[in-house]
């Protein structure tokens, strides 16, 4: 138990903050705690949560993905073209949307691993390409989505928001088993020390490639879910989501130097960010002051998270961070 608390200190603090925020949100919400309120909240959180997961996979291998928002925009636009059918057409559409995300992530990975360009620069440039493609496919927001599936994905299941069920599936059916696989351990090994991982005979190139592809897949899932929530395609959503995804992973205790943090932490970070934004909406703070408060809260949260550096006894220790 003690080990668990020490190992997951950052996640536990973040989870406690989230719980407090959520209770506060439900109390202040004019319509009170109801499935309806929770569903809307969960949908917003799940979108950012999926992008944060994408960012997590890039960050954990000591990379960064500034194209997650762009991949999301592209997959959202692709979805708005392909998700209006039924049955097999719809299934095909979903697969193409996620595959688009995977292909974008793979491209990033190839350029990082074999092109030997720094991830930040690769994804900065590829984001420009993805947004361009999204704009070609849909110059102005629009499109149509099959309402049956959109409703099924964004309403509730026996009183529990579907978005939360989907998140639970990702955690229990994907993340927890995944972490025990070779790849799941490998991303941490590569993130902690690429050289040590290489010298232990790990396929470093493959692992980094897989991590960036997974980032693309989850950005694609975010785009897919965004399509279900908004039922339109919009090529202009990229910048906001990219920046928030970085803030979310940092809030969730994922260190940008790689090798630490969990997918669950990234999710919690995203949920915290969105809950704060929703709280602000009902808090009575003048709407013009809200961006400032969001920025301040973000800065304070990050500063508090970093404050234990001030306690470090050994001055040289701080340079490892």
């Amino acid at each position: 138990m003690r080990d668990f608390v020490t190992a997951y200190r950052r996640e536990l603090i973040a989870a406690a903050v989230l719980a407090a925020l959520l209770v506060f949100y439900l109390i202040t919400h004019p319509r009170g705690a109801s499935t309806y309120v929770l569903t809307i909240w969960a949908n917003q959180c799940a979108i950012l949560g999926l992008v944060a997961i994408a960012q997590f996979f890039a960050v954990v291998v000591r990379g960064i993905d500034l194209s997650v928002g762009a991949i999301m925009a592209l997959t959202n636009v692709v979805g708005s073209h392909l998700l209006s059918g039924t049955g097999i057409d719809l299934a095909f559409g979903v697969i193409v949307v996620v595959a688009t995300g995977a292909a974008c992530g793979l491209l990033n990975g190839l350029l990082v691993v074999y092109g030997r360009i720094q991830p930040i620069v690769v994804t900065l440039s590829s984001a420009s390409i993805f947004v361009g493609l999204a704009l070609i496919l849909r110059p102005t927001p629009g499109g149509r989505v099959n309402y049956d599936i959109a409703d099924a994905m964004t309403l509730d299941l026996f009183g529990i928001p579907t978005a939360l069920v989907l998140i639970a599936i990702i955690i229990f059916a994907f993340w927890l088993p995944f972490r025990r696989t070779g790849l799941g351990l490998g991303i941490y090994a590569v993130g902690s020390s690429q050289q040590a991982a290489f010298q232990s005979g790990m396929p470093v190139a493959t692992i980094r490639l897989a991590a960036f592809t997974l980032a693309g897949v989850f950005a694609g899932l975010a785009g897919l879910f965004y399509t279900f929530v908004t039922t339109t395609g919009d090529a202009g959503i990229a910048p906001n989501f990219t920046l928030n995804s970085i803030a979310a992973v940092v809030l969730g205790g994922v260190l940008l130097r790689g090798g630490t943090g969990t997918l669950i932490g990234a999710l919690i970070g995203a949920f915290i960010l969105k809950t704060i934004a929703s709280l602000m909406f009902f808090s009575g703070i003048p709407s013009l002051a809200q961006p400032l408060f969001e920025g301040l809260i973000l800065a304070v949260a990050i500063a508090v998270g970093a404050a234990d550096v001030l306690r470090s006894k050994h001055r040289l220790e701080v340079f490892g961070r």
Partner: peptide, 21 residues
């Protein structure tokens, strides 16, 4: 605070945006 510059300057950017709005 040894905050990664990418995150800290990003937060500064949103604060400045907030102030000017």
């Amino acid at each position: 605070l040894r905050i990664p510059s990418m995150v800290w300057t990003l937060a500064m950017n949103s604060i400045l945006l907030g102030i000017s709005v």
